[in-house]
């Protein structure tokens, strides 16, 4: 490490050079951020302002821009007193938590196993798990609608087959009733788990990919040190690997949240635009689409999105307060 010796000899110029060097360091982050900030200002700020503006007006999109009428807080009143908005929020959170927790319980260990134990086909397996993420939403929805079919769907057929099997049938599958197959997408009780199941299938591979790259960054020295100290398989996992990927867990949970909030296409294709029986599968995004686009009450939909934003802001604030410091890895 070389130490500059100029500072003693040429004080005046050096202070200018120092200041310039310091300025470069202070300005550098802004430079690095400039493309992102510019794009954000153009493409993100305006829609936010537009939604804010729109939330105070009554507007039907197909009538064109000139057709707005000012209504003050009326839209917010309608948004807040709407039963369906709370129902869709509940649905969204329920399905998000259900799929999120399941996904993490599967992805974290699976990624660990892939990272440490499976050398040979690691890329192949990771690639296979990643495939659902890549599929177009419509294809996913169509496949799952078929699998969840009441009379001829794959799941019910499998259940019926297992039910028939000699030993296992009576032990584990006695509850299956071939006369009344499960109506996965119609029975209110089953709609949310069915959708959550599809979400898990679609996204767990993505998490595996992230976690695998996280696990692989753990330096081998730390692992060796732990082994020398007598750490066994599970201990290694629990005490070394898990804490090291904490920022990635934080990231993935955040993404789960966002993914759940934006979940729209698949339930839309699988259940129809009103979210199935009793709107049990209506997510908040679907509802906003329904109100703003199908029913053309764009003002109320905008008010709903701001209401949602406030709600999320509070929740995220709490979330970051509790886990943020550790999750962000701030020094």
């Amino acid at each position: 490490m070389t130490v500059s010796t100029h500072s003693n000899e040429m004080p005046a110029e050096q202070s200018w050079q120092n200041r310039w060097a310091n300025m470069k360091v202070t300005l550098a982050p802004y430079g690095f951020l400039s493309p992102a900030i510019i794009l954000f200002l153009i493409f993100n700020i305006f829609p936010l302002l537009f939604a804010a503006f729109m939330s105070f007006h009554l507007w039907k999109p197909s009538e064109g821009l000139g057709a707005m009428t000012f209504v003050g807080w009326e839209n917010y009143y309608y948004a807040i007193t709407d039963e369906l908005i709370y129902k869709s929020l509940y649905n969204t959170i329920f399905m998000g938590v259900l799929s999120g927790v399941t996904m993490h319980l599967i992805a974290i260990p699976v990624a660990y196993i892939l990272a440490t134990y499976i050398k040979r086909f690691r890329n192949l397996f990771t690639g296979a798990f990643f495939m659902p993420f890549v599929t177009s939403t419509v294809a996913v929805a169509l496949v799952f609608t078929n699998m969840y079919g009441e009379n001829f769907g794959l799941f019910n057929s499998l259940l019926a087959t297992f039910h028939e099997m000699p030993v296992i049938g009576s032990l584990l599958f006695f509850w299956v009733d071939p006369e009344n197959p499960i109506r996965w997408l119609i029975d209110v009780a089953f709609i949310k788990p069915s959708i959550a199941g599809m979400q898990v299938w679609k996204f767990f591979g993505f998490q595996v990919v992230i976690y695998v790259s996280g696990y692989l960054t753990i330096s081998s020295e730390i692992i060796e040190a732990a082994e020398v100290d007598g750490c066994t398989g599970f201990g290694k996992f629990w005490h070394i690997a898990l804490p090291s990927i904490r920022p990635f867990i934080f990231f993935c949970i955040t993404l789960n949240l966002i993914g759940a909030l934006n979940m729209f296409e698949e339930p839309f294709v699988m259940l129809g635009k009103t979210g199935g029986t009793d709107s049990a599968g209506l997510t908040i995004s679907m509802y906003m689409y329904l109100v703003g686009w199908v029913w053309e009450d764009f003002g109320t939909a905008s008010a709903m999105s701001w209401f949602l934003f406030a709600f999320i802001g509070v929740v995220t604030g709490i979330y970051f307060l509790l886990f943020g410091k550790k999750g962000l890895g701030d020094s």
Partner: peptide
């Protein structure tokens, strides 16, 4: 019409299935 139809058929679903 579009709005009413969606709401009414949603209600029908609840009557039949729920």
């Amino acid at each position: 019409d579009a709005v009413a139809r969606d709401v009414v058929f949603q209600a029908l679903g609840s009557v039949l299935n729920d």
